[in-house]
Write a protein that binds this DNA or RNA. Sequence first.
DNA 1: GATGAATGAGTATTCATTCAT
DNA 2: TATGAATGAATACTCATTCAT
Lengths: 211, 211, 211, 211
Amino acid sequence: MGIQERKERERERRRQQIIVAAKRVFSEKGFTRTTMEDIAKEAELSPGTLYLYFKNKDELYASLSLRILQYLIIRLEHVNGNPDLDANRKIDALVDAMFDVYEFDPLVIINMFHLQSSETLKNLSPQLLAEIEDLSRKSINLIAKTFKIGIEEGVFLDRHPVALADIFWALFSGVILWESSKKIIDEKKDYLKQTLKISFDIFKRGIQREQ
Amino acid sequence: MGIQERKERERERRRQQIIVAAKRVFSEKGFTRTTMEDIAKEAELSPGTLYLYFKNKDELYASLSLRILQYLIIRLEHVNGNPDLDANRKIDALVDAMFDVYEFDPLVIINMFHLQSSETLKNLSPQLLAEIEDLSRKSINLIAKTFKIGIEEGVFLDRHPVALADIFWALFSGVILWESSKKIIDEKKDYLKQTLKISFDIFKRGIQREQ
Amino acid sequence: MGIQERKERERERRRQQIIVAAKRVFSEKGFTRTTMEDIAKEAELSPGTLYLYFKNKDELYASLSLRILQYLIIRLEHVNGNPDLDANRKIDALVDAMFDVYEFDPLVIINMFHLQSSETLKNLSPQLLAEIEDLSRKSINLIAKTFKIGIEEGVFLDRHPVALADIFWALFSGVILWESSKKIIDEKKDYLKQTLKISFDIFKRGIQREQ
Amino acid sequence: MGIQERKERERERRRQQIIVAAKRVFSEKGFTRTTMEDIAKEAELSPGTLYLYFKNKDELYASLSLRILQYLIIRLEHVNGNPDLDANRKIDALVDAMFDVYEFDPLVIINMFHLQSSETLKNLSPQLLAEIEDLSRKSINLIAKTFKIGIEEGVFLDRHPVALADIFWALFSGVILWESSKKIIDEKKDYLKQTLKISFDIFKRGIQREQ
DNA sequence: GATGAATGAGTATTCATTCAT
DNA sequence: TATGAATGAATACTCATTCAT
């Protein structure tokens, strides 16, 4: 291991130390009421040091969200790659994964919504932003893949897998929570309504007796 | 119309003028980044005037939420009181009502979550707080009533109506969005997980082919 | 009584009504924490009306002080004009008068100090200012007259009557309280120190046994 | 000198720098009209920095008062501990000390009265409050001790030393100034009248010829 | 005259961010 | 690298005063 690499590794360790501290404080107080000094104290570092590893408060927050997405993706890949599970079992495993993410950090998922604000977006580095969007899409696709298998196997109704994946997410983090923000609402109004419609549709079918 | 009454009416008109302006600004910027001066400018009034009609920023915000809940209740009551609709049609009408509320103000519903923070709660007058809690409960109950009829008529599976109403809301405003906040999570952890579980359950049933 | 006079009388009645209300509120809350609205409510008038009778808050306050000085002067004149009292009895009567003023309004006397600030002075009409200064001087002179008689009668030590009157006031409202404010301190530094010196001197004599 | 100690010393230097600036501004403008920005400018610091050293405006003000009391105590202890002075000389030395305190800061002593308001008291840290009360009591006791010696030596009339100390203070900072505030007036009305009575009594004795 | 709704200037306090050490 | 003291912009809220009715 070269000296360069050792340094890089050390740097990464610090980043994680800060993210872990940030997670604790954000979870307790929410984004607005958490101060950088709170996080610094929790991480047993000085406020200045945080800025050596994160450009600003928003970027620190986004990095935290990213980490949770990463965790989710690992879980989803594990579910998908497991040949022992049939389509129904896979859905169950997805639900389990969602529960674990929720257990991992209930509030941060809610707060993830904070990221949507266009003001916040301006404060993020394009690279980080791209990474988050990439992982979000990836997680939806992984879930969709599972549904696709189910449809192909003939055990699920033949709705579009991506729509199902969206609804699945919606059930978890809230349709609107996930889809909203002025900008998205303006841009994707029709898509959003469509998703809501499908969602209510499936719900209705879930409570109706077969006749 | 007496002079007293005319004044009261004028006062109410001003309140509405402010609420409408506040809605616009909150929707665009979110609660934290909206300043009282922003709202004052939008309403073409001075900052001081806002405080003649609302005790503080939190109370102005809460009044806004209240207004949306009131609108929803009116719609729900209309659905319930209509004898021409059978259970299935009523669900459809509920969905329509939800869509309209969403159209009415997509972001404020999300932001309603902001109200949950105990810090915010301290700033509200007990009366306003009671009113909001009352209307929230009322809306859930109205939805539940509709499901109850469906179950009694034998067209819906016999899950508990209140649970169904919760899920219905959840689909709309987001399970976690609705249920969360540190305090609630600590107090109602089990109930929340239960709701999520039922919710996933119904979803699963919705996508599974009958075998 | 002409119509003009009747109006003038009515106007004076209103002024007194406001001053009485102001006294109550200022006594309870002090100058800074008392709002014009507080006073208006206490007087059962609207805030705007106060400004028909007093130029501003400072002038209202000063008018109140003036009234108390007027009361004191009446008492002092009564003491002085009473031929039945010898010098010692007159001092006792002065003390009684001071106690009654204190009873009349303990806090306003303290707050009278507020008037000294040059910022406040700028807000007063020259006429009102002159009146207050006039009455202050008058009250000192009335007290001094009493001491003069005592010195002439040979019952008091032959210190200058005005100095004694100053000390008498000083004992009551506080040497510095009465004399201070940046401006006065700069202008009258030597006089103030002199007064304090005499004051301590008399005190010392009061506690020393004759040898 | 350890690094810890050096830092502590540096911190104390800053506190003093701010207190000195605050003294200048408060003396010129009085408490209410002085803004934190005024003080910051005078200290050539930013407003935020003041809050690193003092919790709020009230606490900054109280710290200033504390400093003056500390100076007074040092002087009083010096007088008391000096075996070369007899009782009469000690009184003279006390007077000198009072004059010097007055020279040191005439207005702040007056303003010390501001501290009595119960609203202000709520904003102070209990520790600082206790310290001020402690020093106030200490200064009265030190003066009383001097009078006690005089009474024991038979050179002073045998009034209670503490009462004499109170009057001495009263002469300096004003009976009412020192004793007042709505609350104290309500609670200690009788004591206050008593003090005033003794005070006038001594004064009277000071101006009466022996007969 | 009387009203009281509206004004808007004024201020304590917070906190993300910087930078000399 | 790491520190943490210093910064100063930002903002909710108050209240003396005005003025249309």
